Amino acid sequence: MSSVLFQIENNVAVITLNRPDKLNAFNREMALLLQQQLDECASLQEIRCVYLTGAGKGFSAGQDLAEIVATDGPTMTQILSEHYNPIIDRIRKLPKPVVAAVNGVAAGAGANIALCCDIVVAAQSASFIQAFSKLGLIPDSGGTYFLPRLIGWQKASALAMLGDKISAEEAERMGMIYKVIAGEGFASATLQLAQQLAQMPTQGLALIKQAFNQSFTNNYEQQLAVEDQLQQQAALTDDYKEGVNAFLEKRTPQFKGK
């Protein structure tokens, strides 16, 4: 069985991390395969949203430490430059929304891969752990970048240094994630969210993502210029025309992602 499962349902690419016996901890094979599948999501026009989740009881426990200590295991340089950094870069640059459906524990790199996604939803039983400090390491996979921007400097510093286990409800309260979805219908409810995004104006959503990415380094004047530029692009899309016509005609728009 592949360590990452991939299927397309109603214009949604469903990507499932699939090492459930290891709580979906990453090894080299799994990291490289996830990169390949994210590339496929970028290239296939029929895919209009990506849904990332984990098999079994966990989302991802982060790096498989057994691989690191193996005689022929990857070095830390390889783990970051060849495994995790390319995953983060692909998710942020993918011109389609990425939903992380955190079904269980998300620790270390597993937590930060989830947090770099556009919308993060979590099951009530899920938890988030910046486990790095307990190994003498720093948060990687974008953790030092995204976490303080999501929850503020003080909370991010505390979580990174103490390595506290944060429940899904607490993660929602502090603004780390979008929403907790309770009950046994987590998978169907979160997939429905992804399918809703897949029926929206895909290019418009991609431009929102691009604007947010650029806002991390721009001052407000630069960001106003970015909004001006990207809004002009959005106004040229077929979906914009359809949205306006549907509004004026008082009907439900039929977006095509073009």
Rank of each mutant, 00 (worst) to 15 (best):
Q192M: 11
L236N: 13
Y240I: 00
Q232G: 10
K241F: 06
L207R: 02
Q199P: 06
A225M: 11
Q199A: 13
V244P: 01
Q214C: 09
A206C: 07
Q195C: 07
Y220F: 15
A225W: 10
D238A: 12
L197W: 03
F212R: 15
A206K: 00
E242W: 01
A235C: 11
A234S: 11
E227Q: 15
D228V: 03
Q214R: 14
A198I: 02
Q195M: 10
K241G: 03
Q222N: 05
S188C: 13
L205V: 01
N213Q: 09
K209W: 08
Q192P: 02
F186K: 03
E184L: 12
Q195E: 14
Q210W: 03
E184P: 13
A225V: 06
T202G: 11
D239I: 02
D239C: 03
L193H: 05
A206S: 08
E221W: 13
M200N: 05
T217D: 10
M200Y: 08
Q229D: 14
E184A: 11
V244F: 05
A235E: 15
V226L: 10
L230R: 04
F186I: 05
D239Q: 00
N245W: 03
Q192N: 12
K241H: 06
I208V: 14
A189V: 00
E184D: 14
V226I: 14
L197S: 11
F212I: 15
I181M: 12
T190Q: 01
L224Q: 01
G183E: 02
A234Y: 12
S215L: 02
Q214M: 11
